[in-house]
C-alpha cells in the first residue's frame, strides 16, 4: 500500500442473484453490477466516478462502505482490508468513512428533529459525554454549513432540498470523518442550489483535508470537482484519467461519446461541435455482451473486441484505458 493512498480497491466484484419465485435457487443467474474493478484514491483528493444507468457506480460506493458485502476483492482503507471485517469491527471504521446520499428527502428520518439527526452518530460512537456537549457540537457544525443553529429543534420537512442536503452533510461531518463517499449528492437539486452545495464541499475539503469519492452521472460536474475521473460502463472501468485529460484527451470511444453527449450552454460552440451520437441502448446487465462490454455500440469494433475483454492499462502518466485501440 502506497503512503498517499487512503483507499485502494483491488479486484472488487459485487454480483446480485436474481431470484424469481419463492423456491428458486439463489445460485442461478447473477447481475454483475460491479465486475472486477481496481482503483486508488489519494488522501485529500477528490476522485469522480461517472457512469450511466447500470454502470454500477452506486454499487461501488455502497460496497466500499459495506452496505453491500462484496462478492470478491479487497477494499483497503488506511491499511486495513475492510471488505473482510465483521459488522462490529466495520461499525468502528465507519467513524472515519462516511456517505452522503442522493435524495435529500429520503435520506433524513422524517420523525427525528435536526438535533436528533446530527447527534445520532455522536451517540453511536460515544463522542462527547453529555447531551449538552453534543448539542453544542451540532450547532457548531450547522453554523459551519451555513444553517441557522436555532433550527435544531425543527423537522426535516420544514427545510428546502438544499438545506436538507446540508443537514445530511452535517450528519456525516459529526464524527469528523476522513473520507466521504458522495453518491449523486446534488442531482436532485436545482442548478443554483447545486453550485452552493458543491462550493461547500470544496471549502470543507480545504479546511479539514477531506477525501471524496464523488459519484455522479453528470460528467461536467464530476470534471469540475474531481482531481481524477473514473469512467464506468456496465460494471467495468473503461478509463481513468486526470480530470483535465478526460475532456481534452479522452481515449476510450465511450468516454469520447459521453463527452460529446454533454450539452454546452453556448449556442455558438454547440452548433460547431462535432457530435458522436451513440447507436442503441445500454446493454442489459444480465446478458452481457462477450468481449468488451461496449462493443455493440462502438464504431471502432474489431474482431478481438467481441472475443476477449480488454485490460485496463496505463497509456500515459495517470491515464489508464481498457480498449484494444491503445493496446496492440
Amino acid at each position: 500500500m502506497s503512503e498517499d493512498n487512503i483507499l485502494e480497491v483491488h479486484n472488487l466484484k459485487k454480483y446480485f442473484p436474481i431470484r424469481s419465485g419463492i423456491f428458486a435457487s439463489t445460485k442461478g443467474v447473477m447481475v454483475k453490477a460491479v465486475d472486477d474493478i481496481s482503483f486508488n484514491v489519494k488522501r485529500g483528493e477528490t476522485v469522480g466516478l461517472v457512469g450511466e444507468t447500470g454502470s454500477g457506480k452506486t454499487t461501488v460506493g455502497r460496497t466500499i462502505i459495506r452496505l453491500y458485502d462484496p462478492t470478491e476483492g479487497q477494499v483497503i482503507f488506511e491499511g486495513i482490508d475492510i471488505a473482510s471485517l465483521s459488522e462490529k469491527e466495520m461499525n468502528k471504521v465507519r467513524r472515519r468513512l462516511q456517505m452522503i446520499f442522493q435524495d435529500p428527502y429520503a435520506s433524513l428520518d422524517p420523525r427525528l428533529t435536526v438535533e436528533e439527526i446530527v447527534t445520532e452518530p455522536m451517540e453511536i460512537h460515544n463522542l462527547y459525554n453529555t447531551k449538552q456537549e453534543r448539542r453544542e457540537r451540532a450547532a457548531y457544525i450547522l453554523n459551519l454549513l451555513g444553517l441557522n443553529p436555532e433550527h435544531l429543534s425543527r423537522f426535516p420537512h420544514e427545510f428546502s432540498g438544499g438545506q436538507r442536503q446540508r443537514i445530511g452533510l452535517a450528519r456525516a461531518l459529526a464524527v469528523e470523518p476522513e473520507f466521504i463517499i458522495c453518491d449523486e449528492p446534488v442531482s436532485a437539486l436545482d442548478v443554483s442550489i447545486q453550485a452552493q452545495i458543491i462550493n461547500t464541499f470544496e471549502d470543507l475539503q480545504d479546511e479539514f483535508n477531506l477525501t471524496y469519492l464523488f459519484i455522479s452521472h453528470d460528467l461536467a460536474m464530476v470534471k469540475h470537482i474531481s482531481d481524477e475521473v473514473i469512467v464506468m460502463y456496465l460494471g467495468k472501468i473503461m478509463e481513468i484519467a486526470p480530470s483535465k485529460e478526460i475532456y481534452d484527451k479522452p481515449l476510450h470511444p465511450y468516454t469520447q461519446a459521453l463527452n460529446s453527449a454533454v450539452p454546452i450552454p453556448d449556442p455558438v460552440v454547440e452548433k460547431k461541435r462535432e457530435r458522436i451520437i451513440l447507436e442503441g441502448d445500454i446493454s442489459s446487465n444480465i446478458n452481457l455482451p462477450t468481449g468488451c462490454r461496449f462493443n455493440p455500440r462502438c464504431k471502432y469494433t474489431m474482431n478481438i473486441c467481441k472475443e476477449k475483454e480488454p485490460q485496463l492499462l496505463e497509456v500515459s502518466a495517470g491515464h489508464k484505458v481498457a480498449c484494444y485501440l491503445y493496446n496492440k
Partner: peptide, 9 residues
C-alpha cells in the same frame, strides 16, 4: 435514511 443509519455504524 435507514441506509444512512447503517453507514453511521
Amino acid at each position: 435514511f435507514t441506509l444512512a443509519a447503517r453507514t453511521l455504524g
